[in-house]
Design a protein around this nucleic acid. Structure first.
Length: 1003
RNA sequence: GGCCGGGUGGCGGAAUGGCAGACGCAGCGGACUUAAAAUCCGCCGGACCGGAAGGUCCGUACGGGUUCGAAUCCCGUCCCGGCCA
C-alpha cells in the first residue's frame, strides 16, 4: 500500500479537547469568522469553496492533450504516491507531499509547461476485507465510501489535480490491465545471455525435454517463467486469515495488529525479480534519487561476489564408513578434473556459497539449514530422532529469530561427514537454524576462525577452530584473542593454507577460485540477498489471477495451467460471496460459487480457477502508466501518451516505500520495457521522500509507586510484555515507574537537558512522537481547514521545515502562517469596506527604486528556493516582502500583482481572490510566472564586515562594485578597525568583493 | 551489530567556507481600547563592564585537525531517530 499508515484522526472528536497539552482555543483564532465583522476580513471559509468550485467548473487543471505529432514538448509529470483510502480519512502527513507536488505543478503551468498531475487510490487492502468479515458490508462499498471521503478532503485543500484522470486499483477497468500485465509476466522468461525478458515461445527447449512430449515441454516452460508456482513455507496468520510477506511480520507477529504468525507450507505464486537483480542494481546509478534511498535499495538487493564450492558427501545414505567416503572422494575428484564444475551440484556433494574462498582451509565443519534436502540422507540412524526434533522446532521460528546474533546458537550433528576439497579433510556436517534455506544454497562451510556466527557455534559445540588469516605483520592471532577480539573477520594474510600462505586476502581469493575451477570443484559466483517476490495472498479483496488449473479425472490439480485470453479480461471477483471465515490457510475464494470457480475447456478439460489473489503491491506497480491515458479501452496505456508523458519527472512520497514499492514498480517496468510495451527503462526520474510529521512535542517525567520523581536517565522501557505498551522501569532498582505528562512551566533547561524546575536533579524526556490514535496526538486536516483554511494548512506544512526532514506539528505555527495570509489580505484589500475592495494604498503608479528592488529580490529568492523544493525559505522570503511592503503608504498595483502571482502556487485560493480583486477576470493559473531583472537587485552600496584575525571588528559601507584595494582602504579607514590595528603589523589582507575584508595581524 | 539521517536560542528552523540565530512561534514591554480580542511598535543566546550609548568575552553535542577565516570540510567520541539484521 502506498498510503501513509494512518492511525486515526477522524474519530469526530473535538480536536481541541485533549487536556494537559498545548491546547489551541478556537476563541483565540485570528480568523474565526465573526458575526459582527463584515466579510472583507480575510475569510478563507468564503474564499476557498468559491475558487474550488471555479476550478472545477472551468476544468482549469485539465491535462493538456498529447500533441498530434507526439513531440516531446516541455512536459512535466508530477506524481504523488497515491494513498490507501483508509477509513480514518486523511492524515496531516498526506498533504505534506501533496502540497509540495502541487506547488511544483502550479509553478510549472505558470511557466508554460504541459503538466500531468493526477491522483488515484491504492484501494485494495486488508482492512476493508476485515471490516466485511465483521459487519457483512461488502469491501467494495466500504472502499467507495472511504474514497469519497478522501476525494472530498483532497478537494478541500485545493490541489490542482486533473480529477478526470482519477483511478482506483479496485476498478475492474483498471485491474483488467493489472491482470493483463500479469499475463505478460507469465509469458516471459529471462534470457541471461541477452540480459532481457523474452516471450516464452522463444525459450529454447532442450532436445531431451522435447523428446518427452508436449506436457514435458509445458512443464519445462513453466519452470522458466517470471511468474511461477512453488510450495514455500509462508507466514500464516490465523487471526488475519492470511499469509503475510516476510516484511509484514515483525518479531513473529503480524505488523498490522500484532497477531501471532506460524509458518506453513502452501502453494504460492512467485515473481522472478531476482532475474532482474543486476539491472535493478546497475540502473540505480542513472536515477536522480537521494543517495540514502539508493543505498537502501543496493543493500536490499545485496549483491556479493564470491564463489561456489562443492563438498563431497558420497552417494550412499546414512552412516557410511569413513574409508568408503575417502575412496569415493578420490574418484569424484578425478571425475571433476575431467568434466569440470557442473551447473547443478548433483547428489554426491553439498554446494556452498562463500564470499571468502581464501578461508577454505579453515572450514572445519559444515552447516545445513534445517530445510535442506540433503539433511535426511546425511543423518545417521542414531542421530535421526535428534535431527527430526530439531527440524520441527526450527520450523516454528521466524527467520529473524533465527539469525539474531544475540541469541544462543542451536544445532545438532547429523552424524554425517563431507570432504573439504581444498585439503581432503573429513569435516562433520551439522544442522543449525542460523543458516537460512533462502540465502545462498542453504548450506555453508563454517570457518570459525574468521566468522563470528561460526565462531560462536564452534565454541558452543566444541568444534575445531583454525586460523587461516593473519591480521597484520606485528599482531598474532593469539594476541588478538587476548585482546578480547576472539575472532578475526577482516582481510589479512593467508596462513595454514598450503599454497596460499603469505598471500593477502584479495590475491588468496582469486588464486583459490582459479584452483577450484581447475579442479572442477568450484567456480566464481555472484549472490543476491534479494529473494523472489511472493506474489499471492489469501485474500478476497484483491485482483484475481487470470489463470486456470487443469484438473484430472479425480478433480485434482495436475499442475498444468491455462490462462484467460486477454480479450476476456477482466476476471472479476465473484458476486454474492459471503464473508465467513473458513479458518483454513487456503484462500477464501476456494469457497466461491461453482460457476465462478469451475469451467470446462473446449477440449473437454475440467478447469478450476486460481483462487489466490494478487498482493496490494500489484496495482501500485503501474498506476503511473495508466494516469497517462486512463480511459484507454484497447491498451493499458496508449503508446503515444506513454511516450509523451513518461518518465515521471518528480515523484514524492514517504520513505516507507523506499524498498518494496519502488523496487517492484521498477521490476515490472523493466519487464514491460523488455517486451516492448513502454519506452523508458526506468519509470521515475527524480524522487523525493517527504519526512514524517510528528505530533506536538511532549515532555514526560517519571514517578515511582511512591510518587517520587525518577530522573529519565535512570528509566528504561520495560522488557516485560505489557498490554498497553507503556511499561517503564527504574534501571537501578527495576521497579516500575509511571510516565507523567508535564508542561513547560514545570521545567528549566540545565546543561543542555530539561530538568524539573522543582528539582534540578530530575531529568525529563522531551520529544515529539509519531502521531497515533493510542497516543491521542493525531491532527485532523479537516479541523485545520475549518478553523484556518486550506491555504494556511498548505502553507504551514511547507513552512515547518525542509521537506525531507521529519518535524513536529505545532498548532501555534499554523496560527503564525494564518496571520501572514491575513496580513497579505490587508495589504491589498480594504478590510474596512463592506464589499471586497482594493486597499486605498494600492495605486496604479510606478514603483519606487526601493520597491522594485524588494520585489525583484523576492522574485529571485522565491523562484530559486521553489526550484530547490526549499519551500520553507521561499515562504520566509514572502513574509519578509510583506513585512516591508505592508507598511508602505503607496503600494503600486503592478507590485501587488507580481507578488500575488508568486504566492499563487503556495496559497492558491487567496491568490486567486486577490487577483480578481486586482481587476482580472481569468484565473491566474496560467499567468506567466514573474521574472526578475538582475540589474534591479543590487544596491549602489553595501555594508560589509571587517575582520581582524577572523573576528568581526567593524563594518563599513562601500560601493557595491568596489575592488579589493578600495575595500581594503575603506576598511583601514574605519575607526573601530583602526583601534584594533593599533601597534600591530598587517601580515596579509584578504578581501572578497561584495562580501568581507579580513586583516591578518601580528604583534 | 550494520547502513542511513540528525544534533544550532525556550520551540520549529535559517545560514553548506566569509556578519551565527533570517522567517515564524512562544515570552516580555509599550500604543490603541471602558475592557478584551485583533492590529501596530519595541526587546528577545549566555556571562561580564557601563548611567546610557556602547563594549569585551563565551557560544552551533564533545575532543582534535585543516584554513586568513569552520555551524559548514577532515579524523575521533557521545547522544537521538529511522531502516535492516
Amino acid at each position: 500500500m502506498l498510503g501513509l499508515r494512518t492511525n486515526g484522526g477522524r474519530d469526530g472528536s473535538d480536536p481541541t479537547a485533549p487536556a494537559g497539552r498545548f491546547v489551541h482555543s478556537p476563541a483565540r483564532s485570528a480568523l474565526a469568522p465573526s458575526r459582527f465583522v463584515p466579510m472583507p476580513r480575510y475569510d478563507p471559509a468564503r474564499i476557498e469553496p468559491k475558487w474550488q468550485a471555479f476550478w472545477d467548473d472551468h476544468r482549469t487543471f485539465a491535462t493538456p492533450s498529447v500533441p498530434a505529432d507526439g513531440s516531446a514538448a516541455d512536459k512535466l509529470y508530477v506524481l504523488d504516491m497515491f494513498p490507501y483510502p483508509s477509513g480514518n480519512g486523511l492524515h496531516v502527513g498526506h498533504p505534506e507531499g501533496y502540497t509540495a507536488t502541487d506547488i511544483v505543478a502550479r509553478l510549472a503551468r505558470m511557466r508554460g509547461k504541459q503538466v500531468l498531475h493526477p491522483m488515484g487510490w491504492d484501494a485494495f487492502g486488508l482492512p476493508a476485507e476485515q471490516h466485511a468479515v465483521k459487519t457483512g458490508v461488502h469491501p467494495r462499498e466500504t472502499t467507495a465510501k472511504n474514497i469519497d471521503t478522501f476525494r472530498r478532503q483532497l478537494k478541500s485543500l485545493g490541489f490542482s489535480y486533473d480529477w478526470d484522470r482519477e483511478l482506483s486499483t479496485t476498478d475492474p477497468e483498471y485491474f483488467r490491465w493489472t491482470q493483463w500485465i500479469f499475463l505478460e509476466l507469465y509469458d516471459t522468461w529471462y534470457d541471461a545471455e541477452q540480459k532481457k525478458g523474452r516471450p516464452i515461445a522463444e525459450l529454447p527447449i532442450p532436445e531431451e525435454v522435447q523428446a518427452d512430449g508436449e506436457e514435458a515441454v509445458r512443464r519445462y516452460q513453466d519452470g522458466k517463467r517470471l511468474a511461477y508456482q512453488t510450495h514455500a513455507p509462508v507466514n500464516w496468520c490465523p487471526e488475519l486469515r492470511t499469509v503475510l510477506a516476510n516484511e509484514e511480520v515483525i518479531d513473529g507477529k503480524s505488523e498490522r495488529g500484532g497477531h501471532p504468525v506460524v509458518r506453513l507450507p502452501l502453494r504460492q505464486w512467485m515473481l522472478r525479480i531476482t532475474a532482474y537483480a543486476d539491472r535493478l542494481l546497475g540502473d540505480l546509478d542513472t536515477l536522480d534519487w537521494p543517495e540514502s534511498l539508493k543505498s537502501l535499495q543496493r543493500n536490499w538487493i545485496g549483491k556479493s561476489t564470491g564463489c561456489e564450492v562443492d563438498f563431497y558427501i558420497g552417494e550412499a545414505s546414512g552412516g557410511r564408513q569413513p574409508a568408503e567416503l575417502q575412496d569415493g572422494f578420490e574418484d569424484w575428484q578425478t571425475g571433476r578434473q575431467t568434466h569440470g564444475f557442473p551447473d547443478q551440484p548433483g547428489n554426491d556433494c553439498l554446494r556452498v556459497y562463500t564470499t571468502r574462498p581464501d578461508t577454505l582451509h579453515g572450514a572445519t565443519y559444515m552447516v545445513l539449514a534445517p530445510e535442506h534436502p540433503a539433511v535426511d540422507r546425511l543423518t545417521t540412524p542414531e542421530q535421526q530422532a535428534a535431527v527430526k526434533d530439531y527440524q520441527q522446532k526450527a520450523s516454528e521460528k521466524s527467520d529473524l529469530a533465527r539469525t539474531d546474533l544475540a541469541k544462543e546458537k542451536t544445532g545438532v550433528f547429523t552424524g554425517g561427514y563431507a570432504i573439504n576439497p581444498a585439503n581432503g579433510e573429513r569435516v562433520p556436517v551439522w544442522v543449525a537454524d542460523y543458516v537460512l534455506i533462502s540465502y545462498g544454497t542453504g548450506a555453508i562451510m563454517a570457518v570459525p576462525g574468521h566468522d563470528e556466527r561460526d565462531f560462536e557455534f564452534a565454541k558452543q559445540f566444541g568444534l575445531p577452530i583454525r586460523q587461516v588469516v593473519r591480521p597484520g605483520d606485528s599482531e598474532t592471532f593469539e594476541s588478538l584473542r587476548d585482546a578480547d577480539v576472539e575472532v578475526f573477520i577482516h582481510e589479512g594474510t593467508a596462513v595454514n593454507s598450503g599454497d596460499l600462505d603469505g598471500l593477502p586476502t584479495a590475491q588468496a581469493k582469486s588464486q583459490m577460485i582459479d584452483w577450484l575451477r581447475e579442479a572442477g570443484t568450484g567456480a566464481a559466483a555472484v549472490n543476491y540477498k534479494l529473494r523472489d517476490w511472493l506474489f499471492s495472498r489469501q485474500h478476497f479483496w484483491g485482483e484475481p489471477f487470470p489463470l486456470w488449473h487443469e484438473l484430472d479425472g479425480d478433480g485434482k490439480e495436475t499442475g498444468l495451467l491455462r490462462t484467460d485470453d486477454a480479450a476476456d479480461l477482466p476476471v472479476k471477483l465473484p458476486e454474492n460471496f459471503e464473508f465467513k471465515p473458513h479458518g483454513r490457510p487456503e484462500p477464501p475464494l476456494d469457497e466461491a460459487p461453482d460457476d465462478w470457480l469451475y469451467k470446462t475447456a473446449a477440449d473437454g478439460t475440467k478447469l478450476k480457477r486460481e483462487t489466490n489473489s494478487m498482493p496490494q503491491w500489484a496495482g501500485s506497480c503501474w498506476y503511473f502508466l495508466r494516469f497517462c491515458d486512463p480511459h484507454n479501452d484497447d491498451r493499458f496505456v496508449g503508446a503515444g501518451a506513454e511516450k509523451y508523458w513518461m518518465p515521471v519527472d518528480l515523484y514524492i512520497g514517504g520513505a516507507e516505500h523506499a524498498v518494496l514499492h519502488l523496487l517492484y514498480a521498477r521490476f515490472w517496468h523493466k519487464v514491460l520495457y523488455d517486451r516492448g510495451h513502454v519506452s523508458t527503462v526506468e519509470p521515475f526520474g527524480r524522487l523525493v521522500n517527504q519526512g514524517m510529521i510528528l505530533g506536538e512535542p511532549e515532555v514526560t517525567g517519571y514517578q515511582n509507586a511512591a510518587l517520587q520523581w525518577i530522573s529519565s536517565d535512570d528509566v528504561e522501557a520495560s522488557t516485560a510484555e505489557d498490554e498497553d505498551g507503556t511499561g517503564f522501569v527504574q534501571k537501578s532498582t527495576g521497579e516500575p515507574v509511571q510516565p507523567v505528562k508535564l508542561n513547560a512551566a514545570q521545567l528549566v533547561k540545565m546543561g543542555g537537558v530539561f530538568v524539573l524546575a522543582a528539582d534540578g536533579e530530575i531529568k525529563v524526556d522531551q520529544r515529539a512522537h509519531k502521531m497515533s490514535k493510542s497516543r491521542g496526538n493525531v491532527v485532523n486536516p479537516d479541523s485545520i481547514v475549518a478553523e484556518y483554511g486550506a491555504d494556511s494548512l498548505r502553507l504551514y506544512e511547507m513552512f515547518m521545515g525542509p521537506l525531507e526532514q521529519s518535524k513536529p506539528w505545532q498548532m501555534s505555527g499554523v496560527e503564525g502562517v494564518a496571520r501572514f495570509l491575513a496580513r497579505v489580505w490587508r495589504t491589498i484589500a480594504d478590510e474596512q469596506a463592506d464589499e471586497p475592495t482594493l486597499n486605498a494604498a494600492v495605486q496604479d503608479v510606478e514603483p519606487t527604486e526601493e520597491q522594485e528592488r524588494l520585489l525583484h529580490q523576492t522574485i529571485k529568492a522565491v523562484t530559486n528556493d521553489a526550484d530547490r523544493l526549499s519551500f520553507n525559505t521561499a515562504i520566509s522570503r514572502m513574509m519578509e516582502f510583506t513585512n516591508a511592503f505592508s507598511s508602505m503608504e503607496t503600494r503600486p498595483k503592478s507590485v501587488c500583482e507580481q507578488f500575488t502571482l508568486l504566492l499563487a502556487p503556495f496559497a492558491p485560493h487567496l491568490a486567486e481572490e486577490l487577483w480578481s480583486l486586482l481587476g482580472h477576470d481569468e484565473s491566474l493559473a496560467y499567468e506567466p510566472w514573474p521574472t526578475w531583472d538582475e540589474s534591479k537587485l543590487t544596491e549602489s552600496s553595501v555594508e560589509i564586515p571587517v575582520q581582524i584575525n577572523g573576528k568581526v571588528r567593524g563594518r563599513v559601507r562601500i560601493p557595491a562594485d568596489a575592488d579589493r584595494d578600495a575595500m581594503t582602504a575603506a576598511a583601514k579607514a574605519d575607526e573601530s578597525v583602526q583601534s584594533h590595528l593599533e601597534g600591530k603589523t598587517i601580515v596579509k589582507a584578504i578581501a572578497v568583493p561584495g562580501r568581507m575584508v579580513n586583516f591578518v595581524v601580528k604583534g
